[in-house]
Nucleic acid binder design. Sequence first.
DNA 1: TTTTTTGCTTTGGATGTCTAAGTAAAGGGG
DNA 2: CCCCTTTACTTAGACATCCAAAGCAAAAAA
Lengths: 166, 166
Amino acid sequence: MSTTPDRTDDSLIALRRILRATELYERKLARSAGLTPPKLRVLQILAARPDGSATPKALAVQMGVAQATVTALVDKLEADRLVSRLRSETDRRQTNVAITGAGRDALGQAPDALQQRFVRAFEGLADWEQAQLVSSLERVAAMLDAEEMDASPVLAVGDLKTGTPS
Amino acid sequence: MSTTPDRTDDSLIALRRILRATELYERKLARSAGLTPPKLRVLQILAARPDGSATPKALAVQMGVAQATVTALVDKLEADRLVSRLRSETDRRQTNVAITGAGRDALGQAPDALQQRFVRAFEGLADWEQAQLVSSLERVAAMLDAEEMDASPVLAVGDLKTGTPS
DNA sequence: TTTTTTGCTTTGGATGTCTAAGTAAAGGGG
DNA sequence: CCCCTTTACTTAGACATCCAAAGCAAAAAA
Protein backbone atom coordinates (compact mmCIF):
# COMPACT_ATOMS: atom_id res chain seq x y z
CA MET A 1 0.00 0.00 0.00
CA SER A 2 1.62 3.14 -1.13
CA THR A 3 -0.12 5.14 1.48
CA THR A 4 1.95 8.08 0.31
CA PRO A 5 1.02 10.41 3.12
CA ASP A 6 3.58 12.60 1.46
CA ARG A 7 1.22 15.36 0.65
CA THR A 8 -0.32 15.37 4.07
CA ASP A 9 3.06 15.50 5.72
CA ASP A 10 4.24 18.18 3.36
CA SER A 11 1.25 20.34 4.00
CA LEU A 12 1.56 19.91 7.75
CA ILE A 13 5.20 20.83 7.65
CA ALA A 14 4.48 23.92 5.62
CA LEU A 15 1.68 24.89 7.96
CA ARG A 16 3.95 24.50 10.92
CA ARG A 17 6.56 26.66 9.31
CA ILE A 18 3.94 29.31 8.76
CA LEU A 19 2.77 29.16 12.35
CA ARG A 20 6.21 29.12 13.82
CA ALA A 21 7.62 31.89 11.69
CA THR A 22 4.71 34.12 12.44
CA GLU A 23 4.76 33.47 16.15
CA LEU A 24 8.46 34.08 16.55
CA TYR A 25 8.38 37.17 14.45
CA GLU A 26 5.43 38.53 16.37
CA ARG A 27 7.35 38.21 19.62
CA LYS A 28 10.33 39.95 18.13
CA LEU A 29 8.29 42.77 16.73
CA ALA A 30 6.39 43.36 19.93
CA ARG A 31 9.59 43.52 21.90
CA SER A 32 11.14 45.97 19.53
CA ALA A 33 8.20 48.30 20.14
CA GLY A 34 8.34 47.97 23.89
CA LEU A 35 5.18 45.88 23.93
CA THR A 36 4.32 42.29 24.60
CA PRO A 37 2.46 40.17 22.05
CA PRO A 38 -0.86 40.19 23.93
CA LYS A 39 -0.79 43.94 24.41
CA LEU A 40 0.10 44.36 20.79
CA ARG A 41 -2.86 42.24 19.80
CA VAL A 42 -5.20 44.37 21.84
CA LEU A 43 -3.99 47.46 20.05
CA GLN A 44 -4.25 45.75 16.68
CA ILE A 45 -7.80 44.68 17.31
CA LEU A 46 -8.80 48.15 18.41
CA ALA A 47 -7.08 49.83 15.50
CA ALA A 48 -8.84 47.52 13.09
CA ARG A 49 -12.25 48.68 14.28
CA PRO A 50 -13.87 51.58 12.51
CA ASP A 51 -14.22 53.56 15.71
CA GLY A 52 -11.02 52.32 17.30
CA SER A 53 -12.75 50.87 20.32
CA ALA A 54 -14.29 47.71 21.68
CA THR A 55 -15.66 46.30 24.90
CA PRO A 56 -13.52 44.06 27.08
CA LYS A 57 -15.96 41.29 26.34
CA ALA A 58 -15.44 41.62 22.61
CA LEU A 59 -11.70 41.71 23.08
CA ALA A 60 -11.81 38.58 25.21
CA VAL A 61 -13.82 36.68 22.63
CA GLN A 62 -11.70 37.76 19.74
CA MET A 63 -8.45 36.99 21.52
CA GLY A 64 -9.68 33.77 23.00
CA VAL A 65 -8.83 34.64 26.60
CA ALA A 66 -10.86 35.25 29.73
CA GLN A 67 -12.29 38.63 30.51
CA ALA A 68 -10.11 38.91 33.56
CA THR A 69 -7.09 38.64 31.34
CA VAL A 70 -8.31 41.48 29.20
CA THR A 71 -8.86 43.57 32.28
CA ALA A 72 -5.25 43.08 33.28
CA LEU A 73 -3.98 43.91 29.81
CA VAL A 74 -6.14 47.00 29.51
CA ASP A 75 -5.02 48.13 32.96
CA LYS A 76 -1.45 48.19 31.79
CA LEU A 77 -2.17 49.68 28.41
CA GLU A 78 -4.19 52.39 30.10
CA ALA A 79 -1.37 53.09 32.52
CA ASP A 80 0.84 53.65 29.50
CA ARG A 81 -1.80 55.89 27.90
CA LEU A 82 -2.06 53.62 24.89
CA VAL A 83 -5.78 53.05 25.40
CA SER A 84 -8.48 54.79 27.39
CA ARG A 85 -11.56 53.51 29.15
CA LEU A 86 -14.90 55.18 28.77
CA ARG A 87 -18.18 54.01 30.26
CA SER A 88 -20.92 53.39 27.78
CA GLU A 89 -23.80 55.83 27.94
CA THR A 90 -26.42 53.41 26.74
CA ASP A 91 -25.48 50.54 29.00
CA ARG A 92 -23.51 51.60 31.99
CA ARG A 93 -22.28 48.12 32.67
CA GLN A 94 -20.23 48.30 29.53
CA THR A 95 -16.88 49.93 29.12
CA ASN A 96 -15.44 51.09 25.85
CA VAL A 97 -11.75 50.58 25.43
CA ALA A 98 -10.45 52.96 22.81
CA ILE A 99 -7.01 53.23 21.30
CA THR A 100 -5.33 56.59 21.80
CA GLY A 101 -3.10 58.54 19.50
CA ALA A 102 -0.13 57.26 21.42
CA GLY A 103 -1.50 53.77 20.94
CA ARG A 104 -1.62 54.21 17.21
CA ASP A 105 1.89 55.57 17.27
CA ALA A 106 3.05 52.47 19.12
CA LEU A 107 1.33 50.32 16.54
CA GLY A 108 3.25 52.14 13.88
CA GLN A 109 6.43 51.06 15.60
CA ALA A 110 5.39 47.44 15.45
CA PRO A 111 3.60 46.97 12.19
CA ASP A 112 1.70 43.81 11.78
CA ALA A 113 3.87 40.76 11.56
CA LEU A 114 2.04 39.26 8.66
CA GLN A 115 1.99 42.54 6.85
CA GLN A 116 5.70 42.92 7.18
CA ARG A 117 6.63 39.44 6.18
CA PHE A 118 4.05 38.50 3.73
CA VAL A 119 2.58 41.41 1.88
CA ARG A 120 5.61 42.48 -0.01
CA ALA A 121 6.26 39.00 -1.36
CA PHE A 122 2.63 38.43 -2.12
CA GLU A 123 2.23 41.56 -4.12
CA GLY A 124 5.12 40.59 -6.27
CA LEU A 125 3.33 37.53 -7.53
CA ALA A 126 1.57 37.17 -10.82
CA ASP A 127 -2.14 37.63 -10.81
CA TRP A 128 -3.05 34.01 -11.24
CA GLU A 129 -0.63 33.02 -8.54
CA GLN A 130 -2.25 35.40 -6.10
CA ALA A 131 -5.65 34.03 -6.95
CA GLN A 132 -4.55 30.48 -6.40
CA LEU A 133 -2.89 31.33 -3.12
CA VAL A 134 -5.95 33.08 -1.77
CA SER A 135 -8.13 30.20 -2.76
CA SER A 136 -5.85 27.71 -1.09
CA LEU A 137 -5.47 29.70 2.09
CA GLU A 138 -9.19 30.19 2.42
CA ARG A 139 -9.72 26.52 1.93
CA VAL A 140 -7.25 25.67 4.66
CA ALA A 141 -8.73 28.27 6.96
CA ALA A 142 -12.16 26.79 6.44
CA MET A 143 -10.84 23.36 7.29
CA LEU A 144 -9.25 24.60 10.46
CA ASP A 145 -11.85 26.83 11.97
CA ALA A 146 -14.95 25.08 10.75
CA GLU A 147 -15.48 23.18 13.96
CA GLU A 148 -14.57 26.20 15.95
CA MET A 149 -17.80 27.91 15.14
CA ASP A 150 -20.38 25.41 16.20
CA ALA A 151 -18.41 23.67 18.88
CA SER A 152 -17.71 26.80 20.82
CA PRO A 153 -19.48 29.95 19.82
CA VAL A 154 -18.01 31.71 22.78
CA LEU A 155 -15.39 29.24 23.66
CA ALA A 156 -13.19 31.75 25.32
CA VAL A 157 -14.83 32.69 28.51
CA GLY A 158 -15.20 30.55 31.51
CA ASP A 159 -17.64 28.01 30.31
CA LEU A 160 -16.12 24.97 28.74
CA LYS A 161 -14.98 23.09 31.78
CA THR A 162 -16.78 20.21 30.15
CA GLY A 163 -13.88 19.98 27.74
CA THR A 164 -12.69 16.41 27.79
CA PRO A 165 -14.64 14.17 25.48
CA SER A 166 -15.59 10.96 27.13
CA MET B 1 -14.47 49.98 -7.67
CA SER B 2 -16.61 47.69 -5.59
CA THR B 3 -15.08 44.47 -6.79
CA THR B 4 -11.48 45.42 -6.20
CA PRO B 5 -10.86 41.95 -4.91
CA ASP B 6 -8.08 42.97 -2.66
CA ARG B 7 -6.27 39.70 -2.74
CA THR B 8 -3.73 40.84 -0.25
CA ASP B 9 -6.38 41.53 2.34
CA ASP B 10 -8.12 38.27 1.60
CA SER B 11 -4.96 36.30 1.99
CA LEU B 12 -4.10 38.04 5.22
CA ILE B 13 -7.53 37.38 6.61
CA ALA B 14 -7.32 33.73 5.72
CA LEU B 15 -3.88 33.48 7.22
CA ARG B 16 -5.11 35.05 10.41
CA ARG B 17 -7.97 32.60 10.61
CA ILE B 18 -5.48 29.79 10.26
CA LEU B 19 -3.27 31.14 12.99
CA ARG B 20 -6.08 31.91 15.36
CA ALA B 21 -7.90 28.63 14.94
CA THR B 22 -4.75 26.64 15.47
CA GLU B 23 -3.67 28.60 18.49
CA LEU B 24 -7.00 28.38 20.25
CA TYR B 25 -7.39 24.73 19.51
CA GLU B 26 -3.90 23.99 20.70
CA ARG B 27 -4.66 25.58 24.04
CA LYS B 28 -7.84 23.59 24.40
CA LEU B 29 -6.18 20.34 23.51
CA ALA B 30 -3.30 20.85 25.89
CA ARG B 31 -5.70 21.59 28.71
CA SER B 32 -7.73 18.51 28.03
CA ALA B 33 -4.59 16.43 28.47
CA GLY B 34 -3.58 18.14 31.67
CA LEU B 35 -0.72 19.89 29.95
CA THR B 36 0.09 23.42 28.98
CA PRO B 37 0.90 24.37 25.40
CA PRO B 38 4.63 24.85 25.97
CA LYS B 39 4.96 21.53 27.75
CA LEU B 40 3.00 19.89 25.01
CA ARG B 41 5.32 21.35 22.43
CA VAL B 42 8.33 19.94 24.23
CA LEU B 43 6.80 16.48 24.15
CA GLN B 44 5.88 16.86 20.51
CA ILE B 45 9.36 17.87 19.52
CA LEU B 46 10.89 15.00 21.41
CA ALA B 47 8.44 12.47 20.01
CA ALA B 48 9.18 13.65 16.50
CA ARG B 49 12.86 12.82 16.87
CA PRO B 50 14.01 9.39 15.82
CA ASP B 51 15.48 8.68 19.26
CA GLY B 52 12.89 10.60 21.22
CA SER B 53 15.42 12.92 22.79
CA ALA B 54 17.09 16.27 22.34
CA THR B 55 19.33 18.64 24.24
CA PRO B 56 17.86 21.64 26.02
CA LYS B 57 19.75 23.82 23.60
CA ALA B 58 18.09 22.20 20.62
CA LEU B 59 14.71 22.52 22.27
CA ALA B 60 15.30 26.18 22.99
CA VAL B 61 16.27 26.90 19.40
CA GLN B 62 13.39 25.01 17.92
CA MET B 63 10.85 26.54 20.28
CA GLY B 64 12.29 30.00 20.01
CA VAL B 65 12.71 30.51 23.75
CA ALA B 66 15.65 30.96 26.09
CA GLN B 67 17.49 28.01 27.51
CA ALA B 68 16.43 28.99 31.00
CA THR B 69 12.83 28.59 29.93
CA VAL B 70 13.48 25.11 28.66
CA THR B 71 15.14 24.22 31.93
CA ALA B 72 12.02 25.23 33.79
CA LEU B 73 9.74 23.30 31.47
CA VAL B 74 11.87 20.19 31.59
CA ASP B 75 12.01 20.43 35.38
CA LYS B 76 8.26 20.14 35.55
CA LEU B 77 7.93 17.52 32.89
CA GLU B 78 10.56 15.48 34.67
CA ALA B 79 8.74 15.84 37.96
CA ASP B 80 5.72 14.36 36.22
CA ARG B 81 7.84 11.55 34.76
CA LEU B 82 6.96 12.58 31.22
CA VAL B 83 10.59 13.09 30.26
CA SER B 84 13.89 12.04 31.76
CA ARG B 85 17.28 13.70 31.85
CA LEU B 86 20.44 11.81 31.05
CA ARG B 87 23.93 13.23 30.88
CA SER B 88 25.65 12.75 27.58
CA GLU B 89 28.58 10.35 27.67
CA THR B 90 30.48 12.00 24.88
CA ASP B 91 30.13 15.56 26.14
CA ARG B 92 29.35 15.77 29.79
CA ARG B 93 28.19 19.34 29.53
CA GLN B 94 25.24 18.17 27.52
CA THR B 95 22.05 16.70 28.85
CA ASN B 96 19.73 14.53 26.84
CA VAL B 97 16.07 15.09 27.48
CA ALA B 98 14.16 11.98 26.47
CA ILE B 99 10.45 11.40 26.36
CA THR B 100 9.23 8.53 28.52
CA GLY B 101 6.50 6.02 27.92
CA ALA B 102 4.22 8.07 30.10
CA GLY B 103 5.14 11.08 28.00
CA ARG B 104 4.10 9.31 24.84
CA ASP B 105 0.89 8.26 26.51
CA ALA B 106 0.17 11.86 27.40
CA LEU B 107 0.84 12.85 23.82
CA GLY B 108 -1.71 10.30 22.75
CA GLN B 109 -4.25 12.11 24.90
CA ALA B 110 -3.54 15.37 23.12
CA PRO B 111 -2.91 14.50 19.54
CA ASP B 112 -1.45 17.16 17.42
CA ALA B 113 -3.80 20.04 16.85
CA LEU B 114 -3.08 20.32 13.18
CA GLN B 115 -3.38 16.61 12.70
CA GLN B 116 -6.78 16.56 14.32
CA ARG B 117 -8.19 19.50 12.50
CA PHE B 118 -6.58 19.35 9.18
CA VAL B 119 -5.59 15.90 8.11
CA ARG B 120 -9.02 14.41 7.79
CA ALA B 121 -10.27 17.19 5.59
CA PHE B 122 -7.11 17.26 3.57
CA GLU B 123 -7.16 13.58 2.79
CA GLY B 124 -10.64 13.89 1.47
CA LEU B 125 -9.53 16.22 -1.29
CA ALA B 126 -8.92 15.27 -4.86
CA ASP B 127 -5.38 14.62 -5.85
CA TRP B 128 -4.88 17.78 -7.81
CA GLU B 129 -6.39 19.82 -5.03
CA GLN B 130 -3.94 18.39 -2.57
CA ALA B 131 -1.09 19.16 -4.87
CA GLN B 132 -2.17 22.73 -5.30
CA LEU B 133 -2.63 23.21 -1.59
CA VAL B 134 0.80 21.88 -0.77
CA SER B 135 2.37 24.08 -3.36
CA SER B 136 0.58 27.13 -2.07
CA LEU B 137 1.36 26.44 1.57
CA GLU B 138 5.00 25.88 0.85
CA ARG B 139 5.14 29.07 -1.05
CA VAL B 140 3.61 31.01 1.81
CA ALA B 141 5.88 29.33 4.30
CA ALA B 142 8.88 30.30 2.26
CA MET B 143 7.70 33.88 2.19
CA LEU B 144 7.26 33.96 5.92
CA ASP B 145 10.29 32.23 7.27
CA ALA B 146 12.85 33.25 4.72
CA GLU B 147 14.57 35.71 7.01
CA GLU B 148 14.16 33.45 9.97
CA MET B 149 16.75 30.99 8.73
CA ASP B 150 19.75 32.47 10.41
CA ALA B 151 18.20 32.01 13.81
CA SER B 152 16.78 28.56 13.32
CA PRO B 153 19.04 25.95 11.81
CA VAL B 154 16.74 23.04 12.52
CA LEU B 155 13.24 24.21 12.51
CA ALA B 156 10.83 21.50 11.68
CA VAL B 157 9.50 18.24 12.83
CA GLY B 158 12.09 16.16 11.22
CA ASP B 159 12.90 17.06 7.77
CA LEU B 160 12.57 20.05 5.68
CA LYS B 161 11.61 18.95 2.27
CA THR B 162 13.32 21.09 -0.25
CA GLY B 163 15.21 23.87 1.37
CA THR B 164 14.13 27.37 0.74
CA PRO B 165 15.64 28.95 -2.32
CA SER B 166 18.13 31.66 -1.68
C1' DT C 1 48.38 25.05 32.41
C1' DT C 2 45.58 28.92 31.90
C1' DT C 3 42.00 31.03 29.40
C1' DT C 4 38.03 31.02 26.75
C1' DT C 5 33.99 29.05 25.15
C1' DT C 6 30.03 26.22 25.53
C1' DG C 7 25.91 23.92 27.79
C1' DC C 8 23.02 23.99 31.36
C1' DT C 9 21.02 25.59 35.79
C1' DT C 10 19.77 28.95 39.33
C1' DT C 11 17.97 33.34 40.78
C1' DG C 12 14.91 37.08 40.73
C1' DG C 13 11.49 39.40 38.57
C1' DA C 14 8.01 40.76 34.98
C1' DT C 15 4.01 39.13 32.61
C1' DG C 16 0.04 36.49 31.15
C1' DT C 17 -3.56 33.57 32.38
C1' DC C 18 -7.05 31.32 34.86
C1' DT C 19 -10.85 30.49 38.39
C1' DA C 20 -13.62 32.21 41.95
C1' DA C 21 -15.70 35.79 44.11
C1' DG C 22 -17.31 40.57 44.09
C1' DT C 23 -19.76 44.83 42.28
C1' DA C 24 -22.87 47.14 39.50
C1' DA C 25 -26.32 47.71 36.01
C1' DA C 26 -30.17 45.88 33.19
C1' DG C 27 -34.31 43.02 32.67
C1' DG C 28 -38.27 40.14 34.12
C1' DG C 29 -41.81 38.50 36.67
C1' DG C 30 -44.96 38.78 40.48
C1' DC D 1 -42.30 48.24 43.44
C1' DC D 2 -39.34 44.43 44.84
C1' DC D 3 -36.78 40.30 44.00
C1' DC D 4 -34.24 37.41 41.15
C1' DT D 5 -31.55 36.38 37.35
C1' DT D 6 -28.44 37.64 33.86
C1' DT D 7 -24.77 40.30 32.01
C1' DA D 8 -20.37 43.16 32.06
C1' DC D 9 -16.59 44.11 34.27
C1' DT D 10 -13.21 44.08 38.10
C1' DT D 11 -10.63 42.22 42.01
C1' DA D 12 -7.95 38.67 44.39
C1' DG D 13 -5.09 34.90 44.57
C1' DA D 14 -2.60 31.30 42.39
C1' DC D 15 0.30 29.34 38.73
C1' DA D 16 2.91 29.13 34.54
C1' DT D 17 5.83 31.11 30.99
C1' DC D 18 9.66 33.67 29.96
C1' DC D 19 13.86 36.32 30.29
C1' DA D 20 18.42 38.41 31.65
C1' DA D 21 22.17 37.83 34.53
C1' DA D 22 25.01 35.22 37.27
C1' DG D 23 26.94 30.70 38.40
C1' DC D 24 28.99 26.20 37.49
C1' DA D 25 31.14 22.57 35.14
C1' DA D 26 33.13 20.47 31.13
C1' DA D 27 35.39 20.95 26.70
C1' DA D 28 38.39 23.41 23.62
C1' DA D 29 41.95 26.59 22.62
C1' DA D 30 46.08 29.16 23.59
